[in-house]
Design a protein around this nucleic acid. Structure first.
Lengths: 128, 128
DNA sequence: CCCATCTACAACCATTTGGTTGTACGTTAC
DNA sequence: GTAACGTACAACCAAATGGTTGTAGATGGG
């Protein structure tokens, strides 16, 4: 297993925890110090520190010092990278659908194509 | 943490292992029996069985009996669900970009202060 | 029937994970 | 300078994870 695989491991692993996903949502609304972040959760400061470390190793957030505080902010390219990892899986799925549609019909992408996510790459913005 | 959160946990957790991602790629190219799948990896049959169980609990694959074999196939909607989970994070990021355009220096003391979704106070574990 | 194959599952083990507490260190405020 | 704050990190613990082996139940072919 090469480093790229391990990076994807860390990425999905970091996302596989509701607390960390919530941290991302909070940091995405504006950078927060680790202390301020920790105040939002019913766990010790050290536990929050560890979560932040996991997010950082996954490349989802970066830390920057400001005085005695450490500001946590989301990495703009992070979600894009997660999305890319999913794309890799999805493209394999599309290849299969492609083979099926070739056999079944030529003007339809298959039964899954109605609302299917295969190439629905359009972003669904929160307010349009 | 509600069941939806736990479902997302299971989904990303299942994706956070290179072996399981490879299994998905293989099954996406055509359903495979667990034995045939197991033959592709340098680990015991039981280990592969466990991986398939993880993928199944995450809703990424389904199993179907054919004779004495158990065919594993990807769930067409699975990757779509993963993408949806990422979309939720991405929309938050877009919202932040949106706010930066307006640029108001509001004190981000709590989620209620800025009208955002307040869902961070809940945690796993009784009180520990 | 008997045997080979495919699957299911339990028991066990090592490592990782998610949490705790305690301690030490740099920075800011008084 | 000292106290308070914010952070870093180590030691420890319970539970989950990823692997093993072993055993037992179905299913299909000779």
């Amino acid at each position: 297993m090469d480093e790229a695989d391990r990076a994807v491991d860390r990425l999905f692993q970091a996302l596989a925890d509701a607390t960390r996903r919530d941290m991302l949502r909070r940091c995405v609304r504006g950078e927060l110090s680790v202390s301020r972040l920790a105040a939002a959760y019913p766990m010790s400061f050290a536990a929050v520190q560890k979560h932040v470390t996991v997010l950082e190793r996954a490349g989802l957030v970066t830390k920057e010092r400001r005085g005695r505080e450490q500001l946590v902010r989301t990495d703009p390219g992070a979600v894009a990278r997660a999305r890319q990892a999913l794309d890799a899986l999805e493209s394999a799925w599309r290849a299969r659908v492609d083979r099926m549609s070739g056999l079944l019909s030529e003007d339809d992408d298959g039964p899954d194509a109605c609302g299917g996510p295969a190439h629905a790459r359009e972003r669904k913005g929160p307010d349009g």
